[in-house]
Design a protein around this nucleic acid. Structure first.
Length: 646
RNA sequence: GCCGCUUUAGCUCAGCUGGUAGAGCAACUGAUUUGUAAUCAGUAGGUCGUUGGUUCGAUUCCGACAAGCGGCUCCA
């Protein structure tokens, strides 16, 4: 007999060789039907795998993350079985569960998959699922496994085997499909009740673009149809919040073939948002002791040779223009320009820290396939600044930058974020990273210490640093689940020396400043793209392109409406009148759809009382107030940059 | 850049197997003077992404290119 300890601390005895599924059955049939896998001493196992020793056990169901991913991994195998039955000769690479669903990479030879193939595969998967075939685990010596795949001529699985230890080779079979797999899997295919194959994509073998491109099929499955329907409905909802769709609907930005790929045109409404953001940044930076500068959009080749950017990033810069035997590049970053401002005048330690800020326009030749709405563009406006400081000042400056990030996050209601400390990869020193092994370690440690000291939550990622130093990327998630780097904060120990930046120390020596590159609001493009999705186009009043729309009941009240407009305009409120000859219902509908935060309905009563009937976007009629009260109230809301619509 | 898909009026979308296109909304004109999410009527609007080819004839079939979308790779 063995002792099984349950999550609630209860201990029960079972025969050695009992499986988690047997245990579930001993509790209730209903539970047994729901069990997908089991956590056995913290390791996820097949629910059907026999247990021979005392263990702590947690039964995993659809409600557990590990239960879900086991379910999806098994779904990937089910899909592979369907693919193999429809397209014999296919060779498989790997098929993991992902955040939402699963995929499987495969080599289909010359065959191209179409949407119809996906439908056929779904059908086949449903058939196979109904057979409720068990997922059967089998251990095998490595030599035998190698032989099996050699006979099959499967170079992909042989490649996988190379990295596996003998004795750890396991296979799983369900129905007519057998796959090299470490598992675990759900008990049987019958649990998979709702299947949706979502897309076909190319994916480089081992993620390396020099390798062959395999076919990847993405899918998602659920234990019942209802959850699939809900998931699909959620995707539809997310589409409505997509910044590309909202950006068009709300007149924020547009793209045009004649301008070029990845080069957004900011329309009047978008420009209002840009200017409000810049105003915020300028105020914030001024308070924090930054000085503003302005630099040209182009510079000579030599500047980027000095900075060290060219050898690393020439491919991502627009090709140079040649004039008078000199090459000029469009700037892809502002730092070298700022360094030149630093060195234009001699500096002493008394000048430090020097903080130079600019909303700099940069151009990056991103590969065409990478472009994505406003999130990835070729012309961008960076909330950039460079802080030149001594080593002693570093921690404090770095902390101040951190605080600025947090201040902004609060204003915009960003509560889900992760600071990602990106380090260098020692193997790539001299290629991807400046060859200064000592300085790398030293600087990384400095940054790490500040993060720990300030209690900032962070994760470390190797091999993601900038070429001149470690960086902190702020990862955020838009409400529709898209993850990206919003802002970046980098330490640079290399460029100071490359540009011969110096300052006179208090003992009349010279030293090279450390440089902090920071961009808490990222770029206008990405930030506004994010905000569009975050707010679903319903911007807080201070950011809203149009803040108030006056809706007269009929043109009899135009005189008073005009008076209201002038009063608001005088208070610096962005206001407009819907003077069309339309019924009030239609004016309200269209104002609501345009996401204007305040609608003021004006008719006979309001005119006589010098009042306004206020309607809040998305919230309906908010009652009647006097003109004076409304003006002072909205003015306050704007000045405070109030985050939420109350 | 690579793989796959898509491209018809300002927007959203119809258009069977080739015979040069249609709806709703928007726009414009007129009537209506309206009380909290669409008043009615009329008018105008498209070299069917661009460009080659097949054909008596191409929005429709084939190719190239461009842009967009979903991924991969990349992201200072």
């Amino acid at each position: 007999m063995i002792n099984i300890t349950f999550p609630d601390g209860a201990v029960r005895q079972f025969e050695a060789g009992v499986s988690a599924l047997d245990i579930a059955k001993s509790i209730s049939e209903g539970l047994a039907r729901k069990v997908l896998a089991a956590s056995v001493n913290g390791e996820v196992w097949d629910a059907t795998r026999p247990i021979y020793t005392d263990t702590s056990l947690k039964l995993l169901t659809w409600d557990d993350t590990d239960g879900k991913s086991t379910f999806w991994h098994s779904s990937a195998h089910l899909m592979a079985e369907a693919v193999e039955s429809l397209f014999p000769g296919v060779k498989f690479w790997v098929g993991p569960a992902i955040d939402k669903g699963f995929y499987y990479d495969m080599d289909l030879g010359d065959r191209k998959l179409t949407e119809e193939d996906l439908a056929a595969l779904e059908k086949k998967m449903n058939e196979l699922a109904k057979q409720n075939n068990a997922y059967v685990r089998k251990e095998m010596p490595k030599a035998e496994a190698v032989k099996y795949f050699e006979e099959k001529g499967d170079e992909y699985k042989l490649d996988l085997l190379q990295n596996l230890q003998d004795g750890s080779i396991t296979f799983y079979t369900q129905g007519h499909f057998t796959d090299l797999c470490r598992g675990p899997h759900i008990p049987g295919t019958g649990a998979i009740k709702a299947i949706k194959l979502t897309s076909i994509a190319g994916a480089y073998w081992k993620g390396d673009e020099k390798n062959k491109q395999l076919t990847r099929i993405y899918g998602v499955t659920f234990p019942n149809q209802k959850e699939l329907d809900e998931y699909l409905a959620m995707l539809e909802e997310a589409k409505k919040r997509d910044h590309r769709k909202l950006g068009k609907e709300l007149g924020i930005f547009t793209m045009d073939d004649d301008i070029g790929q990845g080069l957004p045109l900011w329309m009047p409404n978008g420009t209002v948002i840009i200017e409000e953001l810049e105003k915020l940044a300028k105020e914030t930076e001024e308070e924090a002791g930054y000085k503003r500068v302005v630099t040209p959009h182009i510079a000579k080749e030599n500047l980027y040779l000095t900075s060290g950017h060219l050898p690393y990033y020439a491919d991502s810069m627009f090709p140079p223009m040649e004039l008078d035997n000199t090459k000029y590049y469009l700037k892809a970053m502002n730092c070298p320009h700022h360094h030149k401002i630093f060195s234009a005048e001699p500096k002493s330690y008394k000048d430090l820290p020097l903080r130079l800020a600019e909303y700099g326009t940069c151009y990056r030749y991103e590969q065409s396939g990478e472009l994505f709405g406003l999130m990835r563009v070729r012309c961008l406006h960076m909330n950039d600044a460079h802080i030149y400081c001594t080593k002693e000042q570093f921690a404090q400056e770095f902390r101040a930058v951190n605080d600025m990030y947090l201040k902004y996050f609060k204003i915009f209601g960003i509560d889900k974020y992760v600071m990602r400390l990106s380090l260098h990869d020692p193997a790539k020193l001299g290629q991807k990273y400046i060859n200064e092994p000592e300085l790398w370690l030293q600087t990384e440690q400095m940054v790490r210490e500040v993060l720990i000291e300030t209690g900032t939550p962070f994760v470390e990622v190797a091999g993601e640093g900038a070429f001149y130093g470690p960086k902190i990327d702020v990862q955020i998630w838009s409400v529709i689940g898209r993850e990206f780097t919003l802002a970046t904060n980098q330490v640079d120990f290399a460029q100071g020396r490359r540009f011969n930046l110096e300052y006179t120390t208090s003992d009349n020596g010279t030293d090279v400043p450390l440089i902090i590159h920071r961009a808490p609001l990222g770029t206008h493009e990405r930030f506004i793209g994010f905000l569009l999705e975050q707010y679903a186009g319903k911007f807080p009043v201070w950011l809203s392109p149009l803040q108030v729309k006056i809706l007269p009941i009929s043109d009899k009240f135009m005189g008073y409406a005009e008076e209201v407009k002038q009063a608001l305009r005088k208070a610096k409120v962005r206001v407009d009148i819907d003077d069309r000859n339309e019924k009030i219902g239609k004016k309200i509908r269209e104002a609501e759809l345009s996401r204007v935060p305040y609608m003021l309905v004006i008719g006979e009563k309001e005119m006589n009382d010098r009042a306004l009937s206020v309607r809040r976007q998305g919230k309906g009629d908010a009652g009647t107030v006097s003109l004076e009260a409304f003006v002072s109230q909205i003015k306050e809301e704007i000045e405070e940059r109030r985050a939420t619509q109350d």
